[in-house]
């Protein structure tokens, strides 16, 4: 899959590049609106990560240009430091697929990209197997063999997020932000997420041993696959 990162902050663009490359994406960069326009006319992308505040213009204009080209299916995720709610609404009305406020976590970005892919391509069969547990992401169901496991919405979100970011330690703060949204009050005391993880573990452990579900001391959690 190819991704165009339209971002004038070089440092940020390169970090996103590094992360997504490891995930197997092909990355191209544009630091100005003009460059981005040229690239959009020439190539089709699976994803365009679009910063709104570009040095030579507004990201929204670029979005308009893109939407005016017939037959384009490029998914657009807006990245912005402008915390204004009306920007979000405007972006989604103008045809952006999602919105991520800076600063964001790369794990979160990846989760959003996966969600957009699922939505865009209307994947009918979208299941993930984890040591005998089956995650049906479309219907938000977890089964073990034939048996259905009753997870709460939050427990499912946590499981899904950890599986998606497999083999990486996910901090409590990161997990909180993903499940509870971008809450202002982010303290050290995001320990309450433990309540949900504990319950999730209990529900999974009824069916099988789960040594792959690891707690990383004083940091967070990791699912090793």
């Amino acid at each position: 899959m190819n991704v165009l990162i339209v971002e004038d902050e070089r440092g940020l663009a390169l970090e996103i590049d590094e992360f997504l490359s490891k995930q197997g994406y092909t990355i191209e960069h544009a630091r100005k609106k003009a460059t981005a326009e040229e690239k959009i006319f020439v190539n089709q992308y699976d994803f365009i990560l679009l910063d709104l505040g570009l040095p030579d213009g507004d990201g929204f204009e670029l979005l308009h240009t893109l939407k005016n080209i017939k037959g384009r299916e490029d998914a657009v995720i807006i990245l912005t430091a402008r915390g204004e709610v009306d920007d979000r609404i405007k972006g989604l009305e103008d045809g952006a697929d999602d919105y991520l406020a800076k600063p964001f976590s790369l794990n979160e970005l990846l989760a959003r990209m996966h969600a957009v892919i699922r939505r865009k391509h209307k994947l009918e069969k979208n299941d993930i197997e984890v040591f005998g547990f089956n995650l049906d992401i479309k219907n938000r169901l977890v089964t073990f063999g034939e048996e259905r496991i009753n997870l709460t919405k939050k427990e499912f979100e946590i499981f899904n997020y950890l599986v998606l970011n497999k083999n990486r330690v996910i901090s409590r703060v990161n997990l909180t932000e993903h499940v509870w949204g971008d809450i202002l009050e982010v303290n050290s005391d995001s320990n309450f997420v433990d309540v949900h993880v504990k319950n999730l573990r209990k529900k999974l452990a009824i069916h099988a041993e789960i040594p792959w579900f690891e707690t990383v001391r004083s940091i967070g959690f990791r699912i090793n696959i």
Binding site: L12, E18, K22, A81, R82, S105
Partner: peptide
């Protein structure tokens, strides 16, 4: 708007950079 952009952008760069180091 300016302050938010000027402060939040460096925070974003640092935070994704740290995330990459973790990997």
């Amino acid at each position: 708007a300016n302050v938010s952009h000027e402060l939040l952008t460096p925070i974003s760069i640092l935070s994704v950079r740290f995330e990459n180091i973790l990997n």
